[in-house]
Design a protein around this nucleic acid. Sequence first.
DNA 1: CCAATATTTGCATCCCTGTTGCACTTAGCG
DNA 2: CGCTAAGTGCAACAGGGATGCAAATATTGG
Lengths: 139, 139
Amino acid sequence: MTKVKDTLREHDLRNTSCREDVLAILTQNNAALSHGEIERELDNRFDRVTIYRTLKTFVDKGIIHKVLDEEGLRYAVCKDQCSGSRHHHDHLHFKCTVCGLTNCIENITIPPIQLPAGYKSIETNLLIQGVCPLCNSDN
Amino acid sequence: MTKVKDTLREHDLRNTSCREDVLAILTQNNAALSHGEIERELDNRFDRVTIYRTLKTFVDKGIIHKVLDEEGLRYAVCKDQCSGSRHHHDHLHFKCTVCGLTNCIENITIPPIQLPAGYKSIETNLLIQGVCPLCNSDN
DNA sequence: CCAATATTTGCATCCCTGTTGCACTTAGCG
DNA sequence: CGCTAAGTGCAACAGGGATGCAAATATTGG
């Protein structure tokens, strides 16, 4: 919990209970969470708009990143590689079609893609859908 | 335009003016379009809900596919590789951060990703953001 | 520890997307 | 041409995202 406060301080953000709680929830959670899921976890203790603005602030500061799938937008904390000023922009996410959870896959680098001439790549975002180890009966 | 009618017929869809027009717009357009953009192009000649249902039908039939970026959902027609029953699920999309257009990149296959043990991949979706040839002043 | 100030929050309000139910219309068939 | 299943429009709702403004609060300097 002190870690949460530190993270906020490091990014020049005032230490408020909404920010603390949102960041704590995202940190404790492995899977990416949607705005609505976070709102429910907070048990309506904060206004919808406040949570929305909190998430936006965190994204802007590089504390969390957006995760996209066909059902919408989710948020997850950036792992070690993103800490500090070296926020990297290549994310690999895995969405399990059975349990519905979306997770960041660490330790796997996305192989470089050879784009046609003239294209300049800035950020790469890879979403793989399939079955996660916990839901995979083939084990 | 006959081609549009044929496509509908091939997929056991009745030939209605809304479907014709939506499919024609998507076919003529290189970039992926959002629901709202399609609605505007149709000049309010069809109900919002009808367009929504038309798009859903096309996605279900494999005529078009969803394209995701951080701004939301767009739709684009499936190219040759997707035709008929052999609808493939690996898509590479490029979103230009200058002009804002999102396009499918054809002829480039996504290199296979070695996932950790237990993960089973079904569908891969790659979004690369950057600058497209038309907006790239380095040429 | 307190006051000043700049930030953050809650509320009201708005717009857009996605979705469903139901009645009406129409395409495509015999 | 008429039937029937499919498609459409309308009403209505839920949810996400966004902004303006007044009230509350965290930080800073005294």
